[in-house]
Design a binder for these strands. Structure first.
Lengths: 345, 345
DNA sequence: CAGCAAATTGCAAACGATTGCAATTGTGCG
DNA sequence: CGCACAATTGCAATCGTTTGCAATTTGCTG
């Protein structure tokens, strides 16, 4: 006791950086301190309380690196956002960012930390292996397949704890969570046609696999109903897209009366361009978007769109990943999108 | 050589998990492998190439935990988002998320990883100390002071490598990067008055320190010009805000002809409510927002707003943090906001 | 009070990479 | 041919925690 006090006086709030330091002050061994701080072990209640008190007093926190090294797990989940097509855009893409927010929530709740990594595959062939092999993460969530489908497939064979947000394809080997994009495309086309459109256009890049599926769904419905549909490629970010869309609109004027936008962001920009050209929505031309972002209910008129349930997606990603961390080889999870009927179609 | 081949044949692509494994195959010591892989050291070029080849062949990556433990630095910057007032909102707040995207870029470029942590201070008193003391990050960036100004101040005294996005206040002790909110508020109010408004309102919560400063700036200008201004508190998220704003609008109808919204998000919602009530913008009532989000140029009519340069903010945060990691006690960085003249005022 | 089981605690070996210092090999030159 | 010196490489300690096993203490029972 006296000894403790002396030490206290001498080093006071000085430096208790290691278990050993704390152990010396408490007059026990490092092992005991470790167990005490771990909480649940077999240390005497009295000893534990004493140790906890000292730890609190000195603001001691065990070194995570050492801990992680020893127990061979990090408590960190890596979240990678591959930026395949449209480099600057995707990271600020509202949808992905919102998903990221929910992911942070879910992971925090399960006691994991989140390590975020933007990746430009074109500049770094090896991104996924590097992330996984870094030893810094227990598992990986990839947000968006971008144009990296093959690379992800390759890795999936040898690495269980990985889940991907994106599109599901028959027979694929990596575990994916995502909306049924094809179905979403169908819903959109059906709605456009039901509200009177006679000739459709898909506004957006059809390269990314998710968009391709949306377009395919719409095309299927269009074909069945005997309606034409054409793709009108654009980029994603409003700044660059405005002009592109305006150009498309000039060309299709009078030939198209129903637009399915690959994304709400695109739909909103389109809506604005239409209004500037004096086209009435939904009178002369109808629009359906995809995502149901917060803005979409704030446009004038409010946007009819296909809703993806972001919160459910995040929860799915985390649940599946945790099960994979336990060794289970989980199936993919495909979420049903829902048509949100507002006023543009 | 023969020995190497045998081992190769036996364990082949098997398990080269540690430096020691690799060293055995290469017929050197672990230390040499470490130096070789580190690249720049004093190993014989030939030896290094051989080691690199083997490493590549086996897809070997050194264990980061061990490395970090040994060198006592992690190469990771923690990014904390404290959710003080409006829990669910902030994380999906477009502004913060965009900032986060740019931060990820900047940090990646400088060779750091980013560890994201959402924090609910009300549930976790100790969040900042925990994050810092965890030993998992070399430095911390806090996005938004929320209602945690005091706690951040406390920590700043004893912890250099921390930079905060937020509002700068005379004499504060923590290093902050942010827009000059007061000036922004002035710009907004000046514009509203210049375009003919006779009675102003500030739409948004005045508790958060950034918003308080914006309001203060506007109030100063209003006072000088002999114009009234009143605060109209709201939450941030569109879902909950719509009704609040509608209620405010009902009450101020005819009494206010210039609205300064704390945020573009709020401004956009307000714009919609106004239009639904049949008010003409900017004819009957003028609006100025804050942030200049991508949506803001897409509204109808396009929103006049005060622009914060997010990219510059991110760059500033990272630059200052890196200098602090070197031991420099940097000053805060206050960025000038700019009025973006569009059509709502 | 001996004797044994249960409850605590200490010891020391991991975890895997880094790095100062010493040992070895190789080179050039007298 | 031998020596000084430079270029490489090996050795072993270290980072701080965790954890199996052994040692010690405590508590009970006959």
């Amino acid at each position: 006791m006296a000894d403790t006090d002396v030490q206290n006086g001498a080093e006071s709030a000085a430096k208790v950086r290691t278990l050993a330091d704390l152990a010396r002050i408490a007059g026990v061994s490092a092992g005991t301190v470790s167990r005490a701080l771990a909480g649940n072990s077999l240390v005497n209640t009295k000893t534990r309380e004493k140790i906890e008190a000292i730890a609190r007093e000195h603001g001691f926190r065990p070194n995570q690196m050492a801990s992680k090294l020893r127990r061979q797990k990090t408590g960190v989940i890596g979240v990678a956002i591959p930026l395949g097509h449209d480099v600057r855009q995707q990271i600020s893409d509202t949808f992905f960012m919102t998903l990221l927010g929910y992911l942070a929530d879910e992971l925090t709740e399960k006691g994991y930390d989140l390590m975020l990594r933007r990746v430009i595959p074109a500049q770094d062939e090896d991104w996924l292996d590097r992330f996984i092999g870094s030893g810094m993460v227990d598992g990986v969530i990839v947000i968006g397949q971008s144009d990296q489908f093959e690379r992800i497939e390759d890795v999936a064979d040898g690495y269980l704890p990985m889940v991907v947000w994106g599109n599901h394809q028959e027979g694929q080997r990596h575990c994916v969570v995502g909306s049924n994009n094809r179905l979403g495309g169908k819903l959109a086309a059906e709605r456009l046609i039901a509200s009177g459109a006679k000739s459709l256009a898909f506004l957006g890049d059809t390269q990314p696999i998710e968009f391709a599926a949306r377009y395919a769904g719409a095309k299927e419905v269009a074909a069945k109903m005997g309606v034409a549909i054409r793709p009108l490629p654009t980029h994603l970010s409003p700044e660059r897209t405005g002009e592109e869309i305006a150009k498309h609109l000039r060309e299709i004027e009078g030939k198209v009366d129903g637009i399915f936008a690959a994304t709400d962001t695109i739909a909103v920009t389109c809506l604005k361009e239409l209004r500037e050209r004096g086209m009435e929505v939904p009178g002369q031309i109808k629009i359906v978007g995809f995502d149901d972002l917060p803005i979409s209910s704030q446009t004038m008129p409010p946007l009819t769109t296909v809703r993806q349930d972001i919160a459910a997606g995040a929860k799915g990603l985390v649940d599946l990943l945790l099960r994979r961390l336990e060794g289970e080889d989980t199936e993919s999870l495909v979420l049903p999108p829902h048509l949100v009927l507002r006023e543009t179609a």
